[in-house]
Amino acid sequence: MPSVALSHLDHLWFQVSGTLCNLTCQHCFIRCSPTNDQFGYLDLDTVRRHLAESVRLGVKEYYFTGGEPFLHRQMTQILVETLRYGPATVLTNGTVLKDEWLETLRLAEADSCYSLEFRVSIDGFSAETNDPIRGQGTFERAMRGVLKLVDFGFLPIITAARTWDILQEDTVVSCFVAMLKKRGYARPRLKILPTLHLGAEEERTHGYRRTERVTDAMLETFDRTQLICEHSRIVTDRGVCVCPILIESPDALLGGTLGDSLQPFSLNHGACYTCYQYGAICSNPSSQSAREPE
């Protein structure tokens, strides 16, 4: 079983709202919902402690996910403080954003030399394609969030999990772009993610087959910087885990502090295969780099 060393802690993630979400999406790989409190909120002191530790380790960027991060009552404050340390990205479903939060964040980003990125999850370009996955009425609610972000001067990255046939990809992307422009987002940004066959998605479609594993031979000439575990860790309320995808796996929990979590990780999960196949699936496009030639 191949093992991947952390070359450097570039991306520090925070599972800031645990598995708590106001939505219950049919493809959620950690089954987030209003009642799933397997992972809880990170308190502000925990975030601060890890931000302080991250300076010594030279962390380049910070990412916040959940659940829905904006269910956290101190989310705005967390982002404001993070922008003093580095660039911040927050992954949201866009349905609970409030004007006063966005005004505070707009001002904080203007004061910072760093970008604040919003990634808004929408899984179809219409209510008909999105709502069966994310829930009744979520398309319109998320789109209101997108337009609110645009009104405040942000350029949200619409993030869609590929729940369609890959052969339809060009059409789906065109429909997304056309819809966003028509609704008033003049220069839409889009990130398409592969689905992860874990959690709820395992029931919606299927789990990983036993053959879907990364082998030593596959990594021989592979550019390992494409793998999340090569340059990331995530803080949860249970401790520091290897990556945002595997937090529920017992072997993903690596330690109580960042310093304790820097050891290599064995790629023995099906999701590692998806990461290997697609590369850099969790990063923003501005932080990805092309694979080195094999």
């Binding site: 450097h8 380049k60 580095g86 030399c113 760093y114």
Partner: peptide, 10 residues
């Protein structure tokens, strides 16, 4: 805007 100072120090 996406490169922290501590990373450059590193």
């Amino acid at each position: 805007s996406t490169t922290s100072t501590q990373f450059l120090d590193h």
